[in-house]
Nucleic acid binder design. Structure first.
Lengths: 123, 123
DNA sequence: TGCGTGTATTAATTGTTTTAATACACTTAG
DNA sequence: CTAAGTGTATTAAAACAATTAATACACGCA
């Protein structure tokens, strides 16, 4: 069971989302497994159900879980998670490169950064 | 003289900074030229001097102006501005590429995005 | 139908941002 | 050296946004 840290300045819903996020990504929960119910977890942690709801919303945004009305929230497939992460990253990358173009950066400089992390091989 | 828009939801200091920022970047003011004094501009716009001060702080952060105690704020050299922008962008670019590496993105995909905006030539 | 589930709306609380009031410190003209 | 103009720092008031809670609604299943 997760534990809240009231010395942590971050909001409660963020702590809850973060703990479960790590748990899921590290394989502590498997795909399809049910999350604790909004109400039950709220009782366990002695906080309001809406705070849990908010945390689950965050996790849903990240593609880590999905809700089923009347049944509960369930852990998503890690493969789908990975795909969503890549999707989001591609948008970010596109923006960054375009921004560089607008700033008048040289193509070679962009390539150099890529090489720096991915090596020279294969050009 | 700039004009404040009280229907604009953005804070006053941001409006002030934005207006002068555009003015400077578009060549409406030349390097070394003096900005309106904090107090004078405050009187003109009928707002508190600290709000102007805050706006000028923003502009200083962006490298657009520099302060001289007892004398005033002055428009920076556009060349220095350009350099600072590039500096900031390089850090951003570095982070983005590293993040891609951590996500396990393929080198070729990064290169493809670069080509998309900068063309195929020169590989 | 009843219990357990997620969802939506509204309000109270808390925290952050924005603006103002005021006092301090530096520069230069005279 | 003093006065008037300049930027700077500190503090507090006011406005705004984020967070949490209270409450009611809607769905699924036994």
């Amino acid at each position: 069971m997760i534990v809240l840290d009231y010395h942590d300045r971050r909001p409660l819903y963020e702590q809850v989302a973060e703990r479960f996020g790590v748990l899921i990504l590290q394989g502590g929960m498997s795909a399809g497994e049910r999350m604790p119910s909004v109400r039950q977890l709220a009782v366990d942690l002695s906080i309001n159900p809406n705070t849990i709801q908010r945390a689950y919303m965050e996790l849903e945004q990240e593609g880590l879980i999905y809700p089923v009305k009347g049944k509960g929230n369930f852990v998503a497939d890690v493969e789908k998670i990975r795909k969503k992460r890549l999707e989001d990253y591609r948008k970010e990358l596109d923006l960054t490169v375009r921004k560089g173009m607008n700033l008048g950066i040289k193509k070679e400089e962009l390539l150099a950064v890529v090489r720096q992390y991915f090596g020279e091989d294969g050009l």
